[in-house]
Design a protein around this nucleic acid. Sequence first.
DNA 1: TCCTCCATGTAACAGGTTACATGATTCC
DNA 2: GGAATCATGTAACCTGTTACATGGAGGA
Lengths: 182, 182
Amino acid sequence: MSLRHALLGLLSQGSASGYDLLKIFEISLANVWPATQSQLYGELGRLADAGLIEVVAEGPRGRKAYGPTEAGMAELRHWLVEVPPEQLRRSDMLLRVFFLGAVGAEQARAYLKEQGAVATRSHEHLETIRPIVADDDHDLSVYGRIALEWGLRFTRMQQEWAEWAAREIEAHTSRTPSGTGV
Amino acid sequence: MSLRHALLGLLSQGSASGYDLLKIFEISLANVWPATQSQLYGELGRLADAGLIEVVAEGPRGRKAYGPTEAGMAELRHWLVEVPPEQLRRSDMLLRVFFLGAVGAEQARAYLKEQGAVATRSHEHLETIRPIVADDDHDLSVYGRIALEWGLRFTRMQQEWAEWAAREIEAHTSRTPSGTGV
DNA sequence: TCCTCCATGTAACAGGTTACATGATTCC
DNA sequence: GGAATCATGTAACCTGTTACATGGAGGA
């Protein structure tokens, strides 16, 4: 149920309409908690019904700008500090690693090298947005920077791991030259 | 649709019943691709209907052991090398970071330190299972070791990041002592 | 006028979780 | 005989995705 809290969090930083929020999701939250338009409007309705947000302004074309209520802010703070984050991560990238024995060392190495390259590209992309968040001292900037740093460290780790793994397979292959598995 | 491929992958390493597979999911795949019992039996039925697996043995209590068909193995290899892994990662741990401005520096630091501690515990847990996979040269062991190494590097990265982030907040707080945000 | 963008909503479907339901076998 | 374990299956519900549907407002 974290979409609910993502919305509360965004609205705590300033009121916005569903349309505004959708844009914010696309730019800044896309890598952390993607959401689609239909999901978003549905959840806004449910949040309003639950009294956690309310319409604070209406505009042209039926535009409704929402803001959090006191109950909504309380719920957000509760979630932030008292609800332990989910640990579960599904990774089909890693799932494949378990079964790489089904395709022979050459293809296994190619797979890992490709994953390393993907990580490198992601890392480079994140580097390009670093300067945008870098230069000020607001709260938003501090926490944005911390999240960005996570991405930078993660992509670097993944890149280094993939290269290490490709070398491991090479070493294993040279020890057992016949190549087991298929 | 990766549960399907997780099942094909496991069955490619030896035939098994739904019950067997469930146990394997609980132990070895739990951190990478969790699956519930009801999901599993449903998918086994669909895989059989699609001709990707077949019943290779029947046992007591209605036990049905499945093995992959040739079509199933082809599908597995196709998925392994030709279908690019999903990049999407939802992380409610990271989502919270974006909104930490809503709770004051003290609580924000406490949150990050807790996440660091969680990562440390996970890392220690993974270290305990390292010796189990370490000592042989089979394909399975090689790829199991590579996946484990990912976990070790990931948890270490997360731990270091959380500690760094907590220090960042401290530095920011001492620069702007009043404490902005709520 | 026509196109683009703003703006909201619904319906159908897929994947996943929890809970319910049932029964056979083995071991003590 | 009774408990634990093996073994499979179904139903209700929630979250998320894709696609469909509609219309107002502003600019060229």
